[in-house]
Design a protein around this nucleic acid. Sequence first.
DNA 1: TTGTACGCGTTATCAT
DNA 2: ATGATAACGCGTACAA
Lengths: 333, 333
Amino acid sequence: MATIYEVSALAGVSLATVSRVINGSGRVSEKTSKKVRAAIQTLDYRPSSAAKSLASNRTDSVGVLVSEFHGPFYGAMMSGIESELRAKSKHGIFAAGHSDEISEKEGIEFLIDRSCDALILHVEAVSDAYLIELSKGKTPFVLINRFIPELADICISLNNDLGGHMAAHAMLDAGHTHIAYISGPLWKNDSRDRLHGFKNALEKALVPFDEGLLFEGDYHEESGRQGLLNFVKNKKKFTAVACANDEMASGVYKAARELGLTLPEDLSVVGFDHSIFASYLYPQLSSVNYPIGRMGKMAARLVLRNIYKALIKDIKHEFEPELISHDSIAQPK
Amino acid sequence: MATIYEVSALAGVSLATVSRVINGSGRVSEKTSKKVRAAIQTLDYRPSSAAKSLASNRTDSVGVLVSEFHGPFYGAMMSGIESELRAKSKHGIFAAGHSDEISEKEGIEFLIDRSCDALILHVEAVSDAYLIELSKGKTPFVLINRFIPELADICISLNNDLGGHMAAHAMLDAGHTHIAYISGPLWKNDSRDRLHGFKNALEKALVPFDEGLLFEGDYHEESGRQGLLNFVKNKKKFTAVACANDEMASGVYKAARELGLTLPEDLSVVGFDHSIFASYLYPQLSSVNYPIGRMGKMAARLVLRNIYKALIKDIKHEFEPELISHDSIAQPK
DNA sequence: TTGTACGCGTTATCAT
DNA sequence: ATGATAACGCGTACAA
């Protein structure tokens, strides 16, 4: 592999000049620049990223911690981050945190040890205190899907409360008054916010909420199924069920079929996230959209601006959900 | 950040010794080693990965090119790769190739410029010749989901031909003799292999295949829908349809419902990949399993063994598909 | 505008 | 077993 020395020799200039034309730093005459570029061409010279990092103290890499690689959710987020970074010649190093405190901390340590210039974190299990402490460290980061008042300027979050509102109103507007709710794990912030928004919307509409129609799931399909079976077992009356994500809504579909219910006539369902597979379900699932791809892009842009001093305007910290209507909501019989 | 100099000073030993302790290379007395470790602890010393890379000419990073980040397929693959690499303190740099020749080449260039120690490539659009040429270059790589005779020892592939066989037999065994096939793009190797296996199985079973019952889709849902509508429009007789992936099978479900068909009584369907959402469909989709997660792990293990000299046995180059039976196949009426 | 010289924090090759 | 020292390839003040 050719080095910058060979290039400078061939071009008949000093290596400082070569460095300048490569990085566009400092003034270089067009003539010299041309010679240098020619030399780079003929030698097929590629700068050593290691040497560059050592000298500049930057790696051009951004560590990204997601909960999981699979599933429709994080893929969209990673995709948004990667394309945005790559356009600026940076790259992402992705690691999984598995929604587990130990594992998330290990992941963060791993990425810091990789000497990433910055991190983008989608963490659920570590505490606010831990993150506030982390923010005092050397590696800057951005949080996605999380809001911590003390770190507001590095948070990219969804208005989950509003999302809960929308789920409730999707049902209220169709005339439902007995609406069950299958929540995510209540130790997660987003789960609590969605539920809060949901209850709040009912309250404002003067529709009482029966706590017996609340089931705490785990965001996986089977817990959605269990939730519906549970309501039925307890002989609850309800004509609609809102789910805190689409997987659980799919579980509700399954349980409904087991019970011989026809969707959406016998039961209206609304999901959350508007995952890619919402449209694979039958009837196609109405769902509150979570623009995670755009949020991933925004997180990358925030890093690009804060760390790499890219000229980026239009930074936005909070995103709004939106109801995507399909065929899973009918009027109550 | 503490450097190795400070550690050596505090421990009262030379640089070389510290380096030896860290990397476990060369003999070091237990006593010295202890002193060094203590110094590392108190200084909270972390080796600089850049300096390490520069001196050792390794980055401990593996570039991974996938077609897309989203969707159920690549997530499982990336997940397998990441966990396997991280266990050995290596990391993946992921990039997307979008199944497009230019874009795939750019992605490969990008990863090489990142000075990855090796690459894991899931490429569809670049030619065999290009890859053979690439193999003569400096950066070693492994191919996933592709078999090139000249590069057999760096290929991890699925027996797609056998998969096609299985899809055909799922139908034949249920008694179907008029079986349509919705293929992926025929410029892709896996599409061709699956189709070939499918036709071959029919032939062996002495069931003639009507070319009018072949439709070339693009692996996306809508093309599956188009395929089925196309067969019907042409007044073809068939009782079953095999799809080259699950997305297109989902499209077939949609078209079937539009046509008022009841699944699986009026039409049996089999998919390919056994994506996570195969079970979200109703009726749950029978599908030929593609163990992409395990294949990703295997690709990582191959890199670990070949490049990083890890002691790994049980390398396997070809994986076998497997029919996962659910509820989408019935006997013909 | 261009060149010189030093520093970045390791690994690895010699000696000792 | 341990230490001294030369690479590794580039960025960047500082000079010229």
